[in-house]
Amino acid sequence: DKPVLAIQVLGTVKWFNVRNGYGFINRNDTKEDVFVHQTAIKRNNPRKFLRSVGDGETVEFDVVEGEKGAEATNVTGPGGVPVKGSRYAPNR
Results as ranks from 00 to 15, higher is better:
Asp62Ala: 03
Asn91His: 10
Gly80Pro: 03
Asp62Glu: 04
Glu67Lys: 15
Arg47Glu: 14
Arg47Val: 10
Thr73Phe: 14
Tyr88Asn: 09
Glu71Gly: 02
Pro78Tyr: 04
Arg87His: 12
Lys68Cys: 08
Arg92Gln: 11
Thr58Leu: 14
Val13Phe: 04
Leu50Phe: 11
Tyr88Cys: 08
Phe49Leu: 15
Val64Phe: 04
Arg47Ser: 14
Val63Leu: 07
Phe61Leu: 02
Ala70Cys: 14
Asn45Cys: 08
Glu57Pro: 00
Asp55Cys: 14
Ser52Gly: 05
Lys48Ala: 06
Glu57Ile: 01
Ser86Cys: 06
Glu65Thr: 11
Val75Ile: 07
Leu50Trp: 13
Val64Asn: 02
Val64Ile: 13
Glu57Phe: 00
Lys84Asn: 10
Gly66Arg: 02
Ala89Val: 10
Phe49Glu: 12
Glu60Cys: 14
Val64Lys: 06
Thr76Leu: 01
Lys68Pro: 05
Leu50Met: 13
Tyr88Lys: 09
Arg92Thr: 13
Ala70Tyr: 15
Arg87Asp: 14
Pro82Ser: 10
Arg87Trp: 09
Glu57Asp: 03
Val13Ala: 11
Gly77His: 05
Gly77Glu: 04
Arg47Asn: 15
Gly66Ser: 12
Pro82Asn: 08
Val81Asn: 12
Gly79Met: 09
Val13Leu: 14
Gly21Cys: 12
Gly56Glu: 04
Asp55Thr: 14
Leu50Cys: 12
Pro46Arg: 09
Phe24Val: 00
Arg47His: 14
Phe61Ala: 01
Ala70Thr: 14
Gly54Leu: 08
Gly66Val: 03
Pro82Gln: 07
Val53Leu: 15
Gly23Val: 12
Asn45Ile: 00
Gly54Tyr: 06
Glu71Val: 13
Asn44Ala: 11
Asn74Ala: 07
Gly80Tyr: 02
Lys48Val: 04
Val4Phe: 10
Glu67Cys: 13
Val83Met: 01
Ala70Ile: 13
Gly23Ala: 10
Val18Ile: 10
Pro90Gln: 10
Arg51Val: 06
Pro82His: 12
Asn44Glu: 07
Val75Ser: 00
Arg92Trp: 10
Arg92Cys: 12
Val59Asn: 00
Ser52Glu: 08
Ser86Val: 04
Ser86Phe: 05
Tyr22Phe: 09
Glu60Thr: 10
Glu32Asp: 08
Asn17Ile: 11
Pro78Thr: 02
Gly69Ser: 04
Asn28Thr: 09
Gly85Thr: 02
Tyr88Ser: 06
Phe16Ser: 14
Asp55Ala: 15
Pro82Tyr: 09
Gly11Ser: 08
Val81Met: 13
Thr58Val: 15
Val9Ile: 11
Gly85Lys: 00
Glu65Gln: 15
Asp55Phe: 08
Pro78Arg: 06
Thr73Ile: 15
Ala89Phe: 05
Glu57Asn: 01
Glu71Cys: 12
Val81Phe: 09
Thr39Ala: 08
Gly21Ser: 10
Val34Asp: 11
Val63Glu: 03
Glu57His: 03
Asp1Tyr: 12
Arg27Ser: 08
Val75Trp: 00
Val18Gly: 04
Phe61Asp: 01
Asn44Gln: 09
Gly69Lys: 04
Tyr88Thr: 06
Asn44Met: 10
Val75Glu: 03
Glu71Gln: 14
Pro90Arg: 15
Val64Tyr: 05
Ala70Trp: 10
Gly80Trp: 00
Val83Asp: 02
Glu60Gly: 04
Val18Asp: 13
Lys48Ser: 08
Gly69Phe: 02
Ser86Asp: 04
Asp55Ile: 12
Ser52His: 04
Asn45Phe: 01
Phe16Tyr: 15
Glu67Ala: 15
